[in-house]
Design a protein around this nucleic acid. Structure first.
Lengths: 204, 204
DNA sequence: CTAAAACTGGAGATCATCTCCACTTCAAAA
DNA sequence: TTTTGAAGTGGAGATGATCTCCAGTTTTAG
């Protein structure tokens, strides 16, 4: 997958140290308050090394986030194989919320990556989005879910949930509420007729 | 409402100039790339003045955002008085998306304020949330909308939409998708039985 | 008109970010 | 094992943005 670089032994060791420290600091919630240079010292490497491995703070966050996302994506495919499509989607989404709740880092990282104007979350985000997309596609194929929404819509909502994480007292309940709305909105009741979309003419 | 300060004549004038410039730069999309000091010069005031009025970049963004939000909230109450509750909510939410689409500034500001760890969006955010809450409450009272979701859930989703604004090519379609899911998820079909909530036991 | 209070503005202190390069370590070839 | 050069290291210091401080100016009350 990342056979792009052989990477020397000491380099690998340093990279690992950096990642380990990053994860630690991220979970402690100090990630965005810590000077980037001090961060290098904390991991026991020089600033130059830090910057070579991770050019920006966001790159570092993304690297950690990548692992999280891999775990999450793996779970998605596992669920997809085990449960009926609609239930798999439901369990997965609620699982993401659980994960954010248990592990502050992920939520906060998601939020920051989202707010960053560079497309920093490219790789990791792509993977998660693909997992969600596949789950939705499966449910659509089973005919239990509408086919006129994009997986991206769900991603947006997830990002919103992550971004709100440490700003709202009732976060958990509200997050669950969003998921409930999404799932119920997604469910396809056997009603036909016009979808009532794109009638914004009245506005503006 | 803000009778907290009489505020001297020249101070008022400077504050206004700052706000006007901020709005301009914000709409141009350069807000977060511009040096804060240069920003003061651009508005024709000294840095000291800038910092006295708005201690941080976020405070300035929040002040502008405040006006936006006031407009939006006003529309909410107008709709509330004109249309049946459920339709008012629908039109309002789609209107917010329209507004974000037309006016880049709002979306980006929302995103950043959200990511900021200080509760910077306190005032403005509160107002918007209240407007949404009232619309939902009205619809619930009319019996056309479920009563087990908090308005906060919708706020979270809106923030997600705003945060994603200039990162996604298909933003508009996806944003509309989120709104559609929310509205359909909100609609109360006359079905009873267990709500199927909080069965996360299978996870972890 | 006078004086106290409120406000201004920009020079410069402060501090995080990031570059640069002389030195060290690694691992492949002999 | 020794040699060799490619890969990697680390930290001193340049850079540049942020924010403070206060002497001077403007406003308003008396």
């Amino acid at each position: 997958m990342n056979a792009t670089k052989p990477l020397r032994a000491d380099a690998q060791r340093n990279r690992e140290a950096l990642l380990a420290t990053a994860r630690e600091v991220l979970d402690a919630g100090d990630f965005f308050d810590l000077r980037f240079d001090d961060f290098a010292r904390l991991a026991g490497v020089g600033t130059g090394t830090l910057y070579r491995h991770f050019p920006t703070r966001e790159a570092l966050a993304e690297a950690v986030y990548h692992e999280e996302v891999a775990t999450l994506s793996a779970r998605a495919y596992e669920l997809r194989a085990t449960l009926p499509a609609e239930e798999a989607l439901a369990v997965f989404l609620r699982g993401v919320v659980d994960h954010m709740d248990a592990n502050q880092g992920l939520a906060r990282t998601l939020a920051t990556l989202m707010a960053t104007r560079s497309g920093a979350l490219a790789e990791g985000g792509r993977a998660l989005e693909q997992a969600v997309g596949d789950l939705v596609a499966g449910a659509v194929r089973d005919g239990v879910v509408r086919d006129d929404v994009e997986g991206g819509a769900i991603m947006m909502a997830l990002h919103g949930i992550g971004a709100a994480h440490d700003h709202r007292p009732g976060w958990r309940a509200e997050a669950d509420g969003v998921i409930t709305l999404l799932l119920d909105g997604l469910r396809l009741p056997p009603m036909s007729g016009p979808r009532g979309d794109s009638d914004n003419s009245r506005l503006r």
